[in-house]
């Protein structure tokens, strides 16, 4: 009987070695991840963590030793992080993401996607009709650097040269251009998503502006009798790229919906409920933009026949539709959030 000791001191003496063991294991996890642990340590971790957590609540009731309380609080928190941290099996989560979560998020946001497409089409119509009625207004929509010499006053030959680029000097330059495009489009996509929080209005504007570029460009080509050639140039990568942009727009609209019409939830909870799934859409869309960039980099240089270009466009459209319709239908036994 240790009569002279405080109750809280005896409490500590009985449990201290468990705490120190947990601290050692948690140190190891923090330095090198869960994979560093031996199987024995992995088995011990949850039990030690739970013990420490209940020791913490007991200590808070009986002990006034500040250092002990701080230590237990910090250890319990670190144990919690070690037990409930992210699983970072990179490849596995990538497969789970593109195999299941992304196509599911798409299906749940299909109405938003349609609205985003409508915004884009509306923008394209505006871009078309404005350029059609007054070619000078073309430059109010398209930056000269972006136009790269493709203007309403360009001759058909100039435009054609751009559509069927065979310049050897450009060959080395194109991959760089493609990666620039990927980065740029991904930025626009992420912007689209985040702007959603402002009631979704900037999303609509951003989508419409992208549509206007497309519409205006289409008009100058159609006016020179190059309509088919233009679409054959745009669509191989455009199908993927524009779908991805619309997906980001859909994610932004979902956020806007949460802020505008939170329903039964508070705005904060509504945002939370929408946020992660909408974010899944953006993550997937960035993946699609990479695919679009690769297609663009390859097809522009190497595939020139109009039929082949349209075949590629149709193929990608078919593949994406099949993917979004069919992927991730099977319910996994242990359903985990992405």
């Amino acid at each position: 009987m240790s009569v002279g000791l405080l109750r809280s001191t005896r409490f500590r003496k009985e449990r201290e070695r468990h705490w120190r063991e947990l601290a050692r294991i948690v140190d190891k996890v923090e330095r090198g991840g869960v994979s560093q642990l031996t199987s024995g340590e992995v088995a011990r971790l949850p039990g030690l963590y739970r013990q420490t957590l209940s020791a913490l609540s007991a200590a808070r009731a009986i002990s006034l030793d500040r250092n002990l309380l701080d230590f237990l609080g910090s250890l319990a928190a670190r144990g919690f992080f070690a037990v409930y941290g992210t699983r970072h099996r990179f490849f596995e989560s990538l497969v789970g993401f593109f195999g299941t979560h992304f196509p599911r998020a798409f299906r749940r946001h299909f109405p938003h996607f349609l609205v985003a497409v409508a915004c884009l089409v509306l923008g394209a119509w505006i871009g078309w009709s404005v350029t059609d009625s007054d070619p000078e207004r073309y430059f109010s929509m398209i930056d000269r650097s972006m136009a790269q010499g493709r203007t309403p006053s360009s001759s058909p030959d100039e435009l054609r040269r751009f559509l069927y680029d065979t310049d050897e000097a450009h060959r080395g330059f194109l991959p760089a251009f493609a990666s620039f495009l990927i980065a740029n489009n991904a930025r626009v996509g992420m912007l689209c998503f985040t702007f959603g929080i402002a009631l979704g209005i900037p999303v609509v504007v951003l989508l419409a502006m992208n549509g206007m570029l497309l519409g205006a460009m289409t008009q100058i080509h159609v006016a020179k009798g190059l309509g088919v050639d233009w679409w054959a140039w745009v669509s191989p990568h455009g199908v993927t790229e524009l779908s991805a942009i619309c997906l980001c727009g859909a994610a932004g609209l979902a956020l806007g919906q949460a802020t505008l019409f939170p329903g039964e939830l508070s705005r904060r909870d509504a945002l939370l409920a929408r946020g992660r799934e909408a974010g899944t859409l953006v993550g997937g869309a960035i993946g699609m933009l990479v695919v679009a960039g690769l297609i663009e980099g390859i097809v522009r240089q190497t595939v020139h026949p109009i039929d082949a270009r349209f075949a590629i466009a149709g193929g990608t459209a078919l593949l994406w539709s099949a993917y979004f319709l069919l992927a991730g239908r099977r319910v996994a036994p242990a359903e985990a959030a992405p």
């Binding site: 992080f81 409930y84 941290g85 992210t86 699983r87 989560s93 993401f97 979560h101 930025r187 992420m190 912007l191 998503f193 985040t194 702007f195 929080i197 939370l272 946020g275 992660r276 799934e277 909408a278 974010g279 899944t280 953006v282 993550g283 959030a337 992405p338």
Partner: peptide, 26 residues
Amino acid sequence: LRVIDRHGGRLTVAAIFVRNVTREVE
């Protein structure tokens, strides 16, 4: 400092992605 799930659950990949995508605008 450390980022954790607000409701005490596991920190998901989607949550990490979303909280950092918005930095672009912020």
